[in-house]
Amino acid sequence: MSLYFKYLLILFKSQMQYRTSFWLLSIGQFFIPFSVFAGLYFLFERFGHIKGWDFFEVALCFAVIHMAFSLSECFARGFDTFSSLIIKGDFDRVLVRPRSTFLQVLGSKFEFTRIGRLLQSGIVLIWALNNLPIEWSFVKVVTLFFMITSGVFIFTGIYMLAATMCFWTVQGLEVANIFTDGGREMAQYPLNIYQKWVAQFFTYVIPFGTVNYLPLLFILGKTKGNELLYMLTPLAGSLFILPCIFVWQFGVRHYRSTGS
């Protein structure tokens, strides 16, 4: 873990060599989800609520998934841009160093400009929380924290699956964006507004629902039945990364036997 921070530090130093582009990109990253959020705002301005969800409830949903997304893009960028590591042949270097490939790829790249996006979703989070009549308890704070971190795990898992594909295809596959960008867009609304199969897909296959919709019901006090179960769903969702790590290791083995 300490090595991960050392990677973080050296790449942060590198980033600071290009300050102007860092600031410009960060500002850009601030405004991209901002425009999406503005759309959300005007939608509710017009219709008031969607399937019983009001604006601030959805805003909370939005903030959680966007925070998770920006954090994962910042800290798991190595997997997101893994194809460049393969194309340049730098993955060979990873293999001759006595550390796990997981840690080294994770530490190969960070995207610090996502701070802009994080800031934007942070503001939305605070705004939403201030306007929601939530009876806060310690458990609920912990749940909110788990929602964001588990979201990071799920996004990272998808990046890893896409990265693993690079062992076969060399070039990065845009298809993964359906699940990262697409998943993010879907999960910024409570899942029950969609068709049942969509909700099921994003609960059981790619478990965005478990970090967002289900625990949100608990925080907002909308649950029916066992509350504990709803509270623990983010933890279940974060397990998504385990099969991804397994698949990744399979990919590394394939690479080492084919060298391509």
């Binding site: 050296i10 042949g89 060979d92 006595p98 796990s100």
Partner: peptide, 23 residues
């Protein structure tokens, strides 16, 4: 035992850098 083994060797690929470019 890749991890144990590679501690004992050094590798230089002349055409590729192993250093961090901007620092």
């Amino acid at each position: 035992n890749r991890v144990d083994y590679v501690k004992n060797i050094g590798v230089v690929f002349g055409q590729r850098s192993q250093l961090w470019w901007d620092v």
